[in-house]
Amino acid sequence: MEIKPGQVAVITGAGSGIGKALAIACARRGLQVLVADIEQAAATTTAEEIQALGGNALAMCVDVSDAKQVNAMAEQCWQHFGACDLLCNNAGVSINKPLAECTSSDWHWVLSVNTMAIGYALNAFLPRMKEHGSGHIVNTASMAGLIPLSNFGVYVASKYAVVGLSEVLAQELAADNIGVSILCPGIVSTRIFESERNRSDKSISQLADDTDPMHTDFDQAYSRILTPDQVASMVLTAVANNLLYIPTHPEWAPLFQQRSDAIHSAFDTPLNNNNPTNI
């Protein structure tokens, strides 16, 4: 999609992290921005920063796991701006614990925010984007949508789903002049590991400041931390060039290759040589 002043971007999870950086980067390029976040104060702060730059922004408190709220966001978008050119389904949450310890509530919370919310947004925005005949959709997945990560099983499941649905979406929209990109970030300095702060059935007693450095226990080879601004720049470059995949950390490629090779080699197992007795 050619990015031009006056276009409209809708960004969820835009109160902090990648979403906020995306919102401000869009505004710097002259786009009008609907800033959506589950935290009203955070959304308002982002919108005020955009307005201070001379941009046009509307802040909304939206729980993306609620289809009615997502529909209301779409209605407000068209009433206020009259269009949606760039839809960034960016809001996301994470749980870090073994699958055996994950509860049904954990599964419901993560999948509803990370995966189902994208379906709600497509239902609310896509028909009118298709009528307009152009646009671009960015769905935030993760390197965890490409690579299995121990102790992040629920998160991995939600992000594998985002990758798959986005690949199908790209195929289905190829004739509609609507591009699709899948953002697959590695480690970025955000508050994703504090996302349970907004979970209704869990109380977090102490929160780190948004500017605190990200801490992980990942292998050092995969622990390079990008800033949200760096990722936002990659996203807008990908949108402008209609790129499907946006992997932010090329050093993770060997891990994806291991998974890809293992799947590919499975096609050559005795299961597929009509002689299962060789297994």
Rank of each mutant, 00 (worst) to 15 (best):
A266T: 13
F256E: 02
G17R: 06
S150D: 15
K4R: 15
I147W: 01
S195V: 03
D37L: 01
D85Q: 05
E39N: 14
N56H: 14
L34V: 15
L87Q: 05
H108R: 12
G6K: 07
N89G: 12
V70L: 02
L86K: 03
A59Y: 02
A74I: 09
I11H: 01
L31R: 08
L183N: 05
V239R: 00
C26V: 10
D212N: 11
E251D: 15
A124F: 08
L22M: 13
P247V: 12
E131C: 05
S134K: 12
V138S: 13
Q257V: 00
A27E: 06
A170H: 04
V163N: 03
F193T: 09
V110S: 01
G135D: 00
A47S: 13
V231D: 12
Y222V: 04
L226M: 15
E196H: 11
G92Y: 07
S112D: 13
E172R: 06
N123C: 08
A27P: 12
A100Y: 12
S65E: 05
W252K: 03
N114V: 01
V154T: 10
Q7D: 06
P127T: 05
N198A: 06
E131S: 10
I95C: 00
I225E: 04
S134F: 10
I50V: 07
D268P: 04
H264C: 11
A47G: 09
E167D: 01
D63T: 05
A124M: 12
H264T: 09
G13E: 00
G15R: 09
N272Y: 15
D85H: 15
L149I: 15
L22H: 06
R197N: 14
S265M: 06
Q220H: 10
E131Y: 00
H249C: 09
T46P: 05
V35L: 07
E194W: 06
Y155K: 03
V154W: 02
T103M: 01
N198V: 10
A124P: 04
E48G: 02
N71M: 07
N56C: 14
Q171S: 03
E167W: 09
K4T: 06
T12Q: 04
S65H: 08
V113C: 01
T44R: 07
I11E: 07
N177I: 01
L255T: 06
T44Y: 02
L86T: 03
G19F: 06
R259L: 11
G135V: 05
A266Q: 14
L34F: 10
S203G: 04
T216Q: 10
N56D: 13
N89H: 09
S260T: 00
M60G: 03
A25M: 03
A266H: 14
E172V: 07
G133M: 07
S205T: 14
P185L: 07
N151Q: 09
H136P: 08
C184R: 09
C102Q: 11
A174G: 08
N151W: 12
W107I: 08
Q230C: 05
S105N: 11
A238S: 14
F152C: 10
R199F: 07
Q40F: 14
S233Q: 15
A208L: 10
E49F: 06
L146I: 03
